[in-house]
Amino acid sequence: QTVVIGDTTYHLNNPEAAQQIAKELAKKYGLKVVISGNTIKLK
């Protein structure tokens, strides 16, 4: 699972954790979560 935040890319072996982290950050910073395949992007 790949999480992309701005110009930073994180690789996590746990998809659920990756999605949870993405949701928390999106909520905290008012970002939009875009999931395509096994890549999660925060914009």
Rank of each mutant, 00 (worst) to 15 (best):
N38C: 03
T9P: 06
V4F: 05
K28S: 02
T2F: 13
L12C: 00
V4A: 04
V3A: 03
A22G: 04
L12P: 01
A22M: 09
K23N: 12
A22I: 12
N14L: 11
K23I: 11
A22H: 01
K32L: 13
I40A: 00
A22E: 02
T2N: 08
I40N: 00
T8R: 14
V3G: 02
V33P: 00
G6F: 14
Y10D: 01
A26G: 04
A18P: 02
I35M: 06
A18W: 14
V4T: 11
A17I: 12
S36T: 11
Q19C: 13
D7R: 13
K27V: 08
Q1L: 15
I21P: 00
A22K: 02
S36D: 14
A17M: 12
I21Q: 01
V34W: 07
V4P: 02
I40E: 01
L12S: 04
Y29E: 04
L31R: 00
K27Q: 12
E24I: 14
P15Y: 11
V33E: 01
N13K: 11
I21N: 00
A18L: 11
A22D: 00
L31S: 03
I40G: 01
G6N: 07
P15V: 10
A18D: 02
K43G: 10
K41N: 10
G37Q: 03
L25F: 05
A18N: 02
I5W: 14
K43C: 15
Y29S: 03
H11Q: 07
K43M: 15
T39Q: 07
P15N: 08
I21D: 00
K32M: 14
L42T: 01
K27S: 08
T2Y: 13
L31D: 06
I35G: 00
D7F: 14
N13M: 11
V4Y: 07
Y10E: 02
Q20K: 13
L31H: 06
A18E: 01
Q1R: 09
K43P: 06
K32E: 13
G30E: 04
T9F: 06
Y29G: 03
L25P: 00
K27W: 06
L12R: 01
K43T: 15
S36L: 11
K41F: 15
K23M: 12
G30C: 08
K41D: 06
V3S: 03
I21A: 04
T2K: 12
D7P: 07
P15Q: 09
A18T: 05
D7N: 14
E24M: 14
T8E: 06
E16T: 09
D7E: 12
K32A: 12
V33W: 06
I5D: 02
L31N: 04
I5K: 03
G6K: 04
G37R: 01
Y10A: 03
D7A: 12
P15H: 11
L25T: 00
T9N: 04
K32S: 13
Y10W: 09
K28L: 10
H11P: 03
A26P: 00
Q1I: 15
K43S: 14
T8Q: 09
E24A: 14
Y29P: 06
L12Q: 01
L25R: 00
H11L: 08
I40W: 01
H11I: 11
I21S: 01
G37P: 01
I21T: 02
G30N: 09
Q20D: 06
A26M: 09
G37Y: 02
S36Q: 11
Y10P: 01
Y10V: 08
N38D: 08
I21R: 02
A17S: 08
E24Y: 15
V34S: 07
I40K: 00
K32H: 13
T9M: 08
L25W: 07
K27D: 13
E24P: 00
T9V: 13
V4D: 03
T2I: 13
L12V: 11
N14E: 06
A22N: 02
K23T: 11
E16M: 08
Q20V: 07
A26C: 10
G30Y: 05
K28R: 09
K28W: 09
L12K: 01
T39A: 04
L25N: 00
G37D: 05
E24C: 15
I40F: 03
V3N: 01
P15S: 09
Y29K: 03
Y10H: 03
G37S: 03
Q20S: 08
T9K: 08
K43W: 13
N13G: 10
N13C: 15
E24R: 13
N38F: 05
Q19M: 15
L25C: 07
K41H: 15
L25I: 07
I35Y: 07
H11A: 05
K41W: 15
K23Y: 14
